[in-house]
Simulated assay, not measured.
Amino acid sequence: MTEILKLLKNGNKPSLLAAFVNAFLGIIKGAAFFFTGNVAMFAEMMHSFGDSANQFFVYIGSALSKKAPTKQFPAGYGRIVNLVCLFAVIIVAILSYETIKEGWHHLLHPAIESKGIFIALGVLFIGIVLETAVLAKAAVEVLHEAGQEKAGLASISKAFGFLNRAKPATKLVFMEDLVATAGNILAFSAILIAHFTGWGQIEGLVSIIIGCMMFFVVGKVFLDNARGAIGETDQEMLNHIAHLVLDDPNIKDIVRLEVIKEGEFLHVELVAEANPELSLAFLDDVRDHLTEIILSQKGVTRVAILYDEDDGELTWVHVADRPPNLTIK
Rank of each mutant, 00 (worst) to 15 (best):
T2P: 03
N10P: 00
G11I: 01
N12G: 00
F34P: 01
F35R: 01
N54Q: 10
F56R: 02
V58G: 03
I60F: 11
S62G: 10
T70A: 09
Q72L: 12
Q72V: 10
Q72G: 05
G76K: 05
Y77W: 12
R79Y: 08
I80C: 08
V81Q: 03
L86I: 15
L86Q: 07
Y97F: 15
I112V: 08
L121T: 06
G127T: 04
V134D: 06
A136Q: 12
A138F: 02
V140I: 11
H144T: 13
A146Y: 03
K150N: 08
K150E: 14
G152M: 10
S155F: 08
K158M: 12
K167F: 05
T170H: 06
K171V: 04
M175Y: 00
E176A: 08
T181A: 11
I185V: 15
A187V: 13
M213R: 00
F216R: 10
L223T: 13
G228H: 04
I230T: 09
N239H: 10
V245A: 05
P249H: 13
K252S: 13
L257D: 06
V259I: 08
F265T: 04
H267S: 09
D284S: 12
V286T: 05
I293L: 06
S296T: 03
G299H: 03
T301I: 13
A304T: 09
L314S: 11
W316Y: 14
P323R: 10
L326M: 11
L326I: 13
